[in-house]
Design a protein around this nucleic acid. Structure first.
Lengths: 244, 244
DNA sequence: CGAAACTTTGAAGCTCATCAACAGAAGTGG
DNA sequence: CCACTTCTGTTGATGAGCTTCAAAGTTTCG
């Protein structure tokens, strides 16, 4: 058992596909070209083309779109084990920006390596396709939240989804998780003002459901939150794709 | 020049990739198994597995998710030339439902045919990948609208996007388009109440921007609408993907 | 140590949802 | 065929939820 088996990506994929030694080795190779990026400087910029792709090894980033009026909509957050800019590479262009929220570590992925990996280890390709489609399902669920849920349910749902994702890579549980986000991040992601996010957080805290403080989310009443948010994790745990 | 070259899918793909006779023939073959579906009965149902995939030939459908409280969020509308349930097939499960808005005609796609087509005509695979990624970009833009735009801009943006998509398959222009949707469809898609949609439509009409009446959207002031919605069609027209 | 970033709270007001009622169109059954 | 319901569109009244503006407190950091 080598260290790489504990990389977040490997942990995540292993939950859904049992990976052989050879497949683990290929994943290992994808993790070679390790790089560090500082917080706050765009990794990929809206409209830019021919970017590299990465696997996030440590830290958090977010994908967002800026409107002409200056407002920002965060589409998605990425946590360790997630791919960054995979679509941008395949499509030679990106319609959104990606920025590190804290200093991050990421492994650069060469398209050629990726295509090689796909060709030689179809089960790995399957697993990665699964992960990509899960990301898409999360975007859809996010959209549903913006359209249908009120502020309190949105915040609750957001925390629950993050907790489930983080648990998969060993970074969280039903007790809580470390969370480097600011209330502005929540606001821009949930389509609320930062002021209102603050009030909602206070209410959730006073109701004894969840506390977001000092960079940590602590669930005080997990089941109560699930009820409030109508959180159904099915979309995160869908069964495997083609060939599996 | 045969009739198939005028199928909506062919028209759409041709705009972005010049297709050879052979590729046109393969597309032709995909259109063989024509079927009709009545309005209002789910084609794919949330949670259902192992569905077929289709190419929509005529009519409109929508993809939606139902919440436990009964509210409905429409994620996306599909128009002629769009794929239906492609992801459901690849993933063996669907996290959303698909329902025809009017009686539709669709060609059933066999997964084996599709994979064959991909293997033998890579440029076609490229074009289809492009179309799929464009669909994803539309979902993201929809999300941005729900998070950042007010009701008037949402409605305006919605009409403009639809017009652009329909124009690509010859069903609309900057003058307007036939539109079988009800105000409830708009409401469920845009995260508004039907009552408020009605008021917004009235305002847009009174401002001389756009009229939605008797199943038709008529642009009275296209450029004014573009300004109001901050509509930037770039996400619809991104350049081609890998290999192109 | 001062500046910048983030959090917190109050007050005022606007956008939008909800409730209610009605009118017209379209479909349905006796 | 006409009465019936059902679906869709329209408008008014009321108020909840959220935004905006403002200001002050707290933490972080160069």
């Amino acid at each position: 058992m080598n260290a790489i088996e504990n990389s977040p990506l490997t942990r995540k994929l292993s939950v859904f596909v049992a990976l052989s030694d050879m497949e683990l080795a290929v994943l290992d190779r994808l993790h070679q070209r390790r790089r560090t990026f500082v917080q706050g400087i765009d990794l990929v910029h809206q409209g830019q083309s021919d970017q590299a792709a990465y696997v996030l090894a440590e830290g958090w980033v977010c994908s967002y779109k800026i409107q002409r009026d200056g407002s920002r909509q965060i589409v998605d957050f990425q946590i360790p084990g997630d791919f960054l800019g995979l679509r941008s590479v395949l499509l030679h262009t990106s319609d959104h920006s990606i920025v590190p929220i804290v200093e991050i570590e990421a492994a650069e992925i060469l398209v050629s390596d990726l295509l090689d990996a796909f060709a030689h280890t179809p089960r790995l390709a399957t697993a990665i396709l699964w992960a990509a489609s899960r990301d898409e399902a999360m975007v859809v669920e996010h959209l549903v939240g913006l359209g249908q849920r009120d502020a309190e349910a949105r915040v609750a749902h957001f925390f629950l989804e993050l907790a489930a994702r983080l648990a998969l890579v060993g970074l969280g549980s039903k007790a809580g998780f470390e969370c480097p986000l600011t209330q502005y991040h929540l606001a821009d992601s949930l389509g609320l003002s930062a002021v209102h996010v603050n009030r909602v957080l206070r209410r959730l805290r006073e109701e004894g459901l969840v506390t977001f403080r000092d960079g940590r989310v602590s669930f005080e009443n997990y089941d109560g939150l699930v009820t409030l948010a109508e959180f159904d994790p099915e979309y995160l745990n869908h069964t495997g794709p083609l060939l599996s």
